[in-house]
Design a protein around this nucleic acid. Structure first.
Length: 545
RNA sequence: GUCCCCUUAGCUCAAUGGAUAGAGCCCCUGCCUUCUAAGCAGGUAAUCCAGGUUCGAUUCCUGGAGGGGACACCA
């Protein structure tokens, strides 16, 4: 029985109890991990919540609920604790059964949790193909890709999409900029000034001398887009679709969306331009109206963006998530307004805004790249620190907070480096399994038996059993918070709990071979949780270090 | 001027409104003939300020202080 399923069972029993006790419980019944000083596996604050409405003494309710819950099969004991908690100790056998569920049937996590039967689309990175991908895109990529992996793991239908702004004016300007670099003439004032275009122009094929700006633009955009694809591949991030803005235009979706919005009465004309009445629309979050079609007759970028989001819904996605960098946060209210203007429910759309990355070498802030000038390309970071360190560091923090990325630390092969701290545990366990096979304790790959109840009862073993039971809950936390950081932090904690076990509980040289095999089962659970957890973060789990 | 994010230990960060606020690093003291010392055991140390809501606030609300970012008929 895993915690996700046990939570349901306890909640069900608690509701039965509430009926007979004549109290009402809130809709959301959370199961918490108890604080360190409490010797229990689960903590339920439910009596506290019930006492308020019922005007009853919470500790009395807790005693009554504890008595009721001690009849649940998986529960060893349930005790009331002031001011009104119920603390539950689980049977070792149910925790062992959970362990078997982790090591033998890992595909069942979250399944019995149900969860919303939705089709989720997450759009992320979506950088303009006018320059190399930059390190902030790495944070968005980590967020999006890990969320996709976690949601899939929970049985959701989740797709990843990258929107490519390959539209007209931008391509022309890029073409003019790179052509100027090739010819050594000044780059247009509003053009792309980056030094990378010099390199790119030099690398173009021989016939380039005859190219016009349009041809140059096409070349630059194709090459840069290809580099974005390469960078994402190197970062172990994959997309179900690269959606081109040009596709959107050629499909006629842009004028069709304008007509659709007109039909809904959301559009008005003023000063020769066409506006979306985002400010006063029902459910609007925007502070001013926005232009859809300029007085020149050309659409702004906003209109195709709305058309693109309409298309997401038209393709059957009922949960649409966009990931933006902090510099685009101002874009969120108007996108929400657009979703409302399309007549979609507000809670079907979610924007994740992640904050900036500050790059350091030790104490020293890194402001710019030597190669690319004013910004740090993602590729430079991957090349220097490695994909694993980048992804783990990016996953470790909530998107809301600024992220300090220390290149020196990320490159260190020591315990100071969190990613090595976790990977090391995996390698250690794999090594123990090798030794166990050599010693004849347990042949490689064979199934491990369900341990006898007298094994795995020491504090070091028990705490690991417990921690493993929370793994599915952590994935649900990630989904709820739309961030992989609870998983990354969980892996740090799990790794930290393994080392005391390693010191005190010999496996291969255990007193009793049966005990050794029980411990093998336990560490197989740790190994698999780390391997899978790291996998969900796009980080490798080396067998040897 | 308006808007967004942040402020927790010396440092980097955790904690669906729950109990004695957790980790890792740094520093100090011990530990390698026994499954990887990239490790273990022990020690010191924290919620920016003022109000409010609540049985209960690091968490929610209001105001203030400090730091970061954004505010085009640009993309």
């Amino acid at each position: 029985m895993i915690v996700a399923a046990l939570r349901k069972k306890l909640a069900y029993e608690a509701r039965k109890w509430a009926t007979t006790a004549g109290v009402s419980l809130p809709d959301n019944l959370a199961v918490n991990a108890p604080p360190a000083h409490v010797k229990a596996d689960l903590s339920l604050p439910w009596p506290l919540a019930a006492a308020k409405a019922a005007k009853k003494n919470p500790i009395e309710l807790a005693k009554s609920l504890a008595e009721h819950l001690s009849n649940v099969a998986e529960v060893e004991s349930a005790a009331a604790a002031p001011p009104g908690f119920v603390n539950i100790v689980l049977r070792n056998s149910s925790l062992c059964a959970n362990l078997k569920a982790i090591t033998l049937a890992p595909k069942t996590y979250g399944e019995d949790e149900g969860g919303p039967k939705t089709k989720v689309l997450i759009e992320f990175v979506s950088a303009n193909p006018t320059g190399p991908l930059h390190m902030a895109s790495g944070r968005g990529a980590t967020l999006g890709d890990s969320l996709i992996r976690i949601m899939k793991r929970l049985g959701r239908e989740a797709k990843a999409e990258y929107y490519v702004n390959d539209g007209g004016d931008r391509a022309v300007l890029l073409g003019e900029s790179i052509m100027a670099r090739f010819k050594g003439t000044p780059v247009p004032e509003k053009g792309y000034q980056g030094e990378y275009l010099v390199e790119l122009a030099a690398a173009a094929p021989a016939e380039k001398s005859g190219w016009d700006a349009k041809r140059w633009g096409q070349y630059a955009m194709d090459t840069l887009l290809a580099s974005h694809r390469d960078d994402m591949k190197a970062f172990d991030v994959s997309f179900d679709r690269w959606y081109l803005e040009s596709e959107l235009f050629s499909s006629g979706a842009v004028p069709a969306t304008l007509e659709f919005l007109k039909g809904r009465g959301m559009v008005f004309e003023k000063d020769g331009a066409v506006w979306l009445g985002t400010m006063n629309a029902e459910g609007s979050t925007d502070d001013k109206d926005r232009v859809l079609v300029k007085n020149t007759g050309k659409p702004t970028y906003f209109l195709p963006d709305i058309a693109y989001h309409k298309d997401k819904y038209d393709r059957g996605f009922d949960r649409v998530i966009d990931i933006f960098g902090a510099d685009h946060h101002g874009y969120v209210p108007r996108m929400k307004a657009a979703i409302a203007a399309l007549g979609k429910p507000a809670d079907s759309y979610h924007a994740i805004v992640h904050q900036l990355i500050h790059l350091f070498r030790g104490q020293e802030a890194v402001k710019m790249s030597k190669r690319a000038g004013t910004f740090i390309p993602l590729r430079e970071l991957i090349d220097e620190a490695g994909k694993d360190a980048c992804r783990f560091f990016f996953a470790l923090r909530t998107p809301d907070s600024h992220l300090n990325f220390d290149l020196e630390l990320a490159k260190k092969q020591s315990s100071e480096n969190p990613v090595f701290y976790v990977q090391y545990v995996h390698a250690r366990i794999v090594s123990i399994f090798r030794k166990a096979a050599e010693a004849g304790l347990h042949p490689a790959g064979a199934e491990l038996p369900m341990p006898n109840a007298r094994w795995l009862t020491s504090p070091e073993e028990r705490v690991l059993l417990d921690k493993l039971a929370w793994f599915p809950e952590v994935l649900l936390d990630c989904e709820r918070l739309l961030s992989p950081h609870p998983l990354a932090n969980y892996l740090m904690e799990l790794a930290g709990l393994f080392h005391p076990f390693y010191e005190k509980c010999p496996v291969v040289s255990a007193e009793d071979p049966e005990q050794g095999r029980a411990r093998l089962l336990l560490i197989a659970g740790v190994r698999d949780a780390i391997r899978e957890g790291l996998g969900l973060l796009g980080v490798s789990a080396p067998e040897q270090m």
